[in-house]
Design a protein around this nucleic acid. Structure first.
Lengths: 168, 168
DNA sequence: GATTGCATGTAAGGGGTTACATGATTTT
DNA sequence: AAAATCATGTAACCCCTTACATGCAATC
């Protein structure tokens, strides 16, 4: 995904510390990506060297200094260039589908369990996303809508699959 | 994804060489996973050590010996145990969604291009999957159906998104 | 004559996570 | 009294891809 641009993207909205970036990413983009400190901090250091961000250290009595990063003109330019490039193809790993593909090694009972669990998980996701959406009151719900569309499509597919599988 | 089980899974259907596994995976599971030689061969060696597979070397005049791997009882047992465990959560990275989220850094024109490209790619996928499905004459089309369901859901979502975006 | 297919493998590197280290403050 | 929040960072590791090395045969 190139975390470089994820970080620049976050900083294009607001100056933030590494700690902040993680929170914001989780809250706003939790469904599509994540950012761990092990990647975040080293990448910020690299961006500083490259001149894509500037840093302002704010001392605090009780805690480590807060380092607030600002995107620079250079960083904005690089971000824009990247955004214009065609997006790389989706990388999707659904272990569930692999297991279903190999289901002939299991007893029918276990396959039923697998399908039921998948359904329950997907329904759970729908509930969570709906709750999130309600909390955000309107604006920028398109990401939530995307997830919901995928979940609904999968639930329909599951129904279809089950009706074909049961008779076997 | 743990390639160990992908390989065991493939061998649970037929004895195969590493070379064969790659082909079969690409053909049957191309949409959900892949297997590169750099992972395949070392993993096969490890599985052999662990006693999960056995190997039969078949000399050939013109080429390197073909090494045909068979799954053992031990391997079958481990595969079954793994299959019974709950599938790990989907890992999905859609760079497209991240770029769309950061689209406020682009001119509207470039956003339109992004959306149009995504639509074209998704439609292309639909065409390819339909062609594949036609070739396979019936059986085991559920995986293709899954992909198609996701693509259709996305195309609908795209239409929705575009109609909301255009007025802005 | 160049590309594709068959068939094995290794080495280097990329990209990331997890767990750890530190430590006060606020909430439960 | 325990856990979560704030806040930085490093080190070890995992998993995987890419590119390379080898080399003949068949196809275009």
């Amino acid at each position: 995904m190139s975390y470089k641009y994820l970080i620049l993207g976050m900083l294009s909205e607001n100056p933030m510390s590494g700690y902040d970036i993680k929170k914001v990413v989780k809250q706003a983009l939790g469904g599509i990506t994540s950012a761990s400190y092990g990647t975040l901090y080293p990448t910020l250091h690299k961006l500083l060297e490259e001149g894509c961000v500037s840093m302002q250290e704010i001392p605090q009595r009780t805690r480590p200094s807060k380092k607030v990063y600002h995107i620079t003109d250079r960083g904005r330019e690089e971000l824009r260039e990247w955004l214009k490039q065609p997006a790389s193809t989706d990388q999707v790993r659904r272990e569930f589908l692999l297991k279903l593909y190999l289901a002939h090694n299991l007893e029918p009972k276990d396959v039923q369990i697998m399908l039921a669990m998948r359904r329950a998980e997907t329904e759970q996701t729908v509930r969570e996303v709906l709750a999130d959406k309600a909390r955000q009151t309107g604006e920028k719900s398109w990401l939530a809508d995307y997830t919901l569309a995928m979940c609904e499509a999968e639930l329909n597919w599951l129904t279809d699959f089950e009706s074909r599988y049961k008779p076997l």
